[in-house]
Amino acid sequence: MELKEKLESECEEASKQLKNPNAGQTVKRHIDLLKGYNAIRDIGLGLLGMIADTKGLRVAEVMKEYGVDLKD
């Protein structure tokens, strides 16, 4: 078996093992997941802002009080 044929065979076998071999669909799914994450994060930050306004504190102080880090 030629090297090219062997590599094509290995590539085809690896593609079969992928959950979704279509790169376009994978990218679209990741974008959709990121949009969902961002929406939830925006809601959480909005709630922290409301709590901060109610308590007369800065958002950073409320985040610290609730154990939320900027990386969360």
Rank of each mutant, 00 (worst) to 15 (best):
G44E: 10
I43Q: 14
R41G: 01
I31C: 02
K55G: 00
V59D: 00
E12D: 14
K6D: 06
L18Y: 08
G44T: 06
R41Q: 06
K64L: 04
K55V: 02
G24R: 03
M50F: 06
G46L: 06
M63A: 00
L3R: 13
M63G: 01
Y66L: 09
A52G: 04
L45N: 15
K55Q: 07
I40L: 11
Q25P: 00
N22A: 12
E2R: 15
A60P: 00
R41A: 05
S15G: 04
R58G: 04
E5P: 01
G24K: 02
M50S: 10
I43C: 06
K19E: 15
K28M: 14
Q17R: 12
R41H: 05
G67L: 14
K28P: 00
S15F: 03
L45G: 06
T54E: 09
D69E: 15
G56R: 00
G36A: 09
K4I: 12
E61Q: 09
D32W: 00
L7N: 07
M1G: 05
V68H: 11
D69T: 11
I31T: 02
K16I: 02
L70R: 14
K16D: 01
E13I: 08
G49T: 11
C11E: 15
I31Y: 01
S9W: 15
N22S: 13
K19I: 14
H30T: 09
L34H: 03
I31R: 04
A23C: 05
L18T: 04
D53H: 04
K19W: 14
L70S: 12
D53E: 11
